[in-house]
Amino acid sequence: MTVSTSHRPAASRSTAPSPSTGRAASIPRAKRRKWATKGHLIAATLVTLAFVSPVYLTVVNAFKPQDQIVSDPAALPVPPTTRNLTDALSRPDRIIQIGLTNSLVTVVASVILIIPIGAAFSFWLSRRSAPLQRIVLAVFGAGLMIPPAVLLLPTIRILTFLHLDHTYTGLVLSNVGGGYLAFAVFVYSGFLRSVPGEIIEAATVDGAGTLRIWWTIVMPLLRPATATVAIFLSLWIWNDFMNPQFILGPLHGQTITTGVYQSLGQFSTNYAQLFGVMLLAAVIPVAGYLFLQKQFIAGLTSGASK
């Protein structure tokens, strides 16, 4: 900054009025910049508000009775009612309670299995030859690109063969074996490249076994990668729709996404009910995101810069 000011005083922070002759230009630069900053903030705010208006509509209408949703959809809920939420929770099919429980179980079981497997495999891979690493990562990368619809039918056949079709075990197993595992291996492998080999070397000299090195040294070092993997996999598995819909099937329980789909497909004009169910279905991932947003963005950023 100092260099720049010494060369071109008028270009940066100078508060001196510009020597220009026009009236507008006689306004001090600093003042003009302040207005520009304000204008920028207003523009950014307006664009952001327009962008999130669908989310806004969901939140405010979840707390309004049906007639108010129809007459004044964009208004704030005054006075707010919790009727839609209590109605959603007291539905005879208990779709919210059952869906949330099933989704939670599926997510936790899948992520708890993928993390140690993915991390240990990446550690193993990081100590193989470079060509082998390249081949394995290329094969895993290809797996990330395959549309799930391509794999769905054979996956169901394999699960049927294992007698795991229409079960949560089958759903979790296909989560653990599929593209999600490939994602975990990608993140861990990328992160492991930045871990200095000397740390592991020292432990090896000390005579620690590989599994112990992995658990006591590598896993703590990988913590930021684990945060990324856990956050994104939880979100994706939670929001997954196609796999639970076809692997579980409608008769074998619902996750929150398939439950919302089944129950809301029927009434498209009962908006009070619709927004009540949707708010409750969305609140856990959104709360998790707002709570962990720093890690979310960091994970996305580190992933995108690779």
Binding site: T48, V52, T58, L235, N239, M278, A281, P285, V286, Y289
Partner: peptide
């Protein structure tokens, strides 16, 4: 304020496609 806007801008990515589609079906 800009960091808050960034937080908000990512929100559609956090919601499941099912919920997003229901909201837009209403809109």
């Amino acid at each position: 304020s800009y960091r808050m806007m960034r937080t908000v801008a990512f929100l559609p990515q956090v919601l499941s496609g099912v919920i997003v589609a229901f909201v837009w079906r209403y809109i």
